[in-house]
């Protein structure tokens, strides 16, 4: 329980710290109020005020990270911020979920499986995303179009499966 409480504060704080550092290093001070807004949303979400705060915080943080890429802010910092935003959002929602208090065997299994999956997902996604831009593969334009269509169809398939 303590680990969850620490993580639900650490991830959002680290995310906003990365965003603030990235934008400050690039000298874009006008973005800092938005970063502060994201931080407020994270804190409200961490206090368990409402589920919509976690959504707002995630969208703001991901938007800032994506915006940073177009404003030539450090790519690793923005990448890290986006990943931490995803982790923070997940942990905040998971911490606010109703679990038995005091925790029993099933609660421990629940936490273990959840954290294992989250670490696996982020552990696969983040290094791949960080290393990816440095890998240069020349593929013909036709292949690129095909891959794009494949990606869109996959996303559409995922959407349909989730919508059920």
């Amino acid at each position: 329980m303590l680990r969850r409480k620490i993580l639900k504060l650490v991830c959002p704080l680290a995310c906003t710290a990365c965003l603030a550092a990235g934008y400050a290093a690039a000298g874009i001070w006008t973005a800092l109020p938005v970063v502060f807004l994201a931080l407020s949303a994270w804190l409200l979400a961490a206090l368990g005020r409402s589920g919509s705060f976690s959504w707002a915080a995630l969208i703001l943080s991901a938007g800032l990270a994506a915006g940073g890429l177009f404003a030539s802010v450090s790519f690793p910092l923005m990448m890290l911020a986006a990943t931490l935003a995803l982790a923070g959002w997940d942990i905040v929602l998971f911490t606010n979920a109703p679990v038995p208090d005091p925790p029993d065997g099933s609660t421990r299994l629940l936490s273990e499986r959840h954290y294992r999956s989250l670490i696996t997902a982020l552990g696969l996604g983040l290094p791949a995303a960080l290393i990816g831009p440095s890998i240069r593969i020349q593929i013909p334009f036709g292949w690129m179009i095909l891959l794009g269509i494949f990606a869109l169809l996959s996303l559409e398939g995922v959407w349909r499966r989730l919508k059920g």
């Binding site: 990270a65 890429l69 990943t83 999956s117 989250l118 997902a121 995922v158």
Partner: peptide, 16 residues
């Protein structure tokens, strides 16, 4: 390419 790479952790989350 960077925004697309940024989507990768989210896709990994979904995929898993």
């Amino acid at each position: 390419a960077e925004p697309i790479w940024m989507a990768l952790p989210f896709l990994a989350y979904f995929g898993l």
